[in-house]
């Protein structure tokens, strides 16, 4: 709830490992709120989110946060630190083993190793987004939550990030991507969720050889099932 407005209706879903799930919806549908709840940054006014490690062990607090990586609108990086220092700082916060090696590997993986020792403040929007991707992956999260991750990325950046998402899926991660860029996720996602006015109005597998047109069709038909306007609108 945001004040008296309900940002999300009750949502019942299970996110699986080895799967990339796209979360679609118009502005104010509640996508960012759902992501914030999954990331432990927002406490739901009712209901609960259960996280399970392999072996069905319930995780809590710090152990849970260690398994979550978030890519958001903002970079989550310090402009006065260099790209390398940012990654080094977060790798130490997450207690990453062999942090220097991991930092170097990720800087190379996202293609900003040449600018690694420049203050992040001097980065272009696209470079900052690449650094944000590296920061989110620094601890090899089991759950990767992405809110408009393609923002600011050029064509090669989109390809790079799509490949990273495939690798994360192959590694067994749960990947949830909120986006309006249907082209970017075409052929990439395994499952499509559509939120409308806070309600989950579609939850189904992505068609094989899923194109942007197919995703658009799913999105448009799901929107026709939109929840009653009494649900109100929230952030998202």
């Amino acid at each position: 709830m945001y004040g008296r407005q309900r940002a999300l209706q009750p949502v019942d879903l299970t996110l699986e490992p080895n799967q990339i799930t796209a979360l679609l919806g118009e502005n104010g549908a509640g996508k960012s709120t759902l992501l914030g709840i999954l990331a432990t940054l927002i406490s739901p006014s009712s209901g609960e989110v259960l996280y399970h490690a392999p072996g069905n062990v319930a995780l809590e607090d710090q152990a849970l946060r260690r398994t979550i990586g978030v890519i958001a609108h903002d970079s989550f990086c310090y402009g006065d630190l260099t790209g390398r220092e940012n990654l080094s700082f977060f790798s130490r916060l997450y207690r990453v083993a062999d942090a220097m090696k991991r930092t170097d590997a990720l800087l190379a993986r996202v293609g900003i190793e040449a600018a690694a020792d420049r203050p992040a403040r001097t980065y272009s929007r696209g470079m900052m987004q690449r650094l944000a991707v590296a920061r989110a992956l620094i601890h090899s999260p089991a759950i990767l939550l992405c809110d408009e991750p393609f923002t600011g990325l050029d064509r090669s950046g989109v390809q790079m990030f799509s490949q990273i998402l495939r690798e994360e899926r192959g590694r067994g991660a749960i990947v949830l991507v909120v986006t309006h860029e249907f082209e970017a996720i075409a052929g990439l996602v395994d499952r499509v969720l559509v939120l409308s006015r806070g309600a989950l109005v579609h939850d189904g597998p992505a068609p094989s050889a899923c194109t942007a047109v197919e995703i658009e069709r799913i999105y448009t038909s799901a929107q026709r099932l939109r929840a009653p306007s009494a649900a109100g609108t929230g952030k998202g």
Binding site: T40, A63, V70, D74, F76, G79
Partner: peptide, 15 residues
């Protein structure tokens, strides 16, 4: 708040 780094710190597995 620049870069929303406070959120990044709240997400980190620290007290």
């Amino acid at each position: 708040r620049e870069g929303n780094t406070l959120r990044a710190l709240l997400l980190a597995p620290i007290s």
